[in-house]
Amino acid sequence: MTSRLAMHAALIMLAMLASAHAQQQTLAIGEVAPGVFMHQGRIALMSSDNDGAIANIGVVIGEQAVAVIDTGGSVREGRQLLAAIRAHTDKPIRYVINTHGHPDHMFGNAAFVAEGTEFVGHVRLPQALAVRGQYYVDAFRRSMGDALIDDVRIVPPTRLVDGELVLDLGGRTLVVKAWPTAHSDSDVTVFDTVTKTLFAGDLVFLRHIPVLDGSIQAWLKLLDDLAALPANRVVPGHGPVSAWPQALAAERRYLETLASDIRSDVTDGRPIAAAAEHAAAAERDKWELFDDYNARNATAAYSQFEWE
């Protein structure tokens, strides 16, 4: 075989691998408790390289029906999730619960639009999507490209949660709980009563630096109520499945450090831009993506503490 032929063959192989990757059938999901599955997202920013698959996703299979908790950061990821579910069960997907309105958790919604599937979300989620949805689509077109974004549709919830909502999957119930503004203004958690698994959405971060898009004071206040939930384990919005409530410790430390640094910046009259540069510096080595989000968290926190 000539070297030219070998190269040609190698190129064909590469092309086949690439297209296999692009059309990969199923998303990796693992069983964390009987009938409870999760996909663990990469700790990364959404990009064209990772299909936006950075957030954790949950699947709970009951005797009669299936619930999906978040749908991923692209319709491609959503379709791969659907295929992964179908590899385990052919029961109908009765509920798609969006833990909140951020793109990495809901850009895959369109893959699940079907008769008999209800979209469940916080009572404030429709408003959040109305205000931000189109902006997200436009902004992520820049970082993820047309191929991934063209299919994305903003699918608002058809069933709203104000307080608590119990969903019956047959033989097991899920409790969906709406929270006050914390990580975002439309956070819900999902609790599987059978295995005591808590899907916390982005109210809980591990390894991935917490991201503030709501209210830092309210988030800190809410941690005690969250810790009181009778869960054995948590599937956080980002990071590994962990024991409960110990999983909250690192996030609490970060938010308290940020809050205390920013409070003194405001008291001392240090300008917001300066505060963004140094706040919570003690936490830098403890989180992934620190430099991608910390200045932003500091900016948001500053504009809130100013009104205290």
């Binding site: 997200y136 902004a139 203004d185 898009d213 709501g214 209210s215 309210a218 989000y293 948001a300």
Partner: peptide, 9 residues
């Protein structure tokens, strides 16, 4: 990321 030029609360 998920930052948007919109109200947080």
């Amino acid at each position: 990321g998920c930052s948007a030029p919109a109200a947080k609360n």
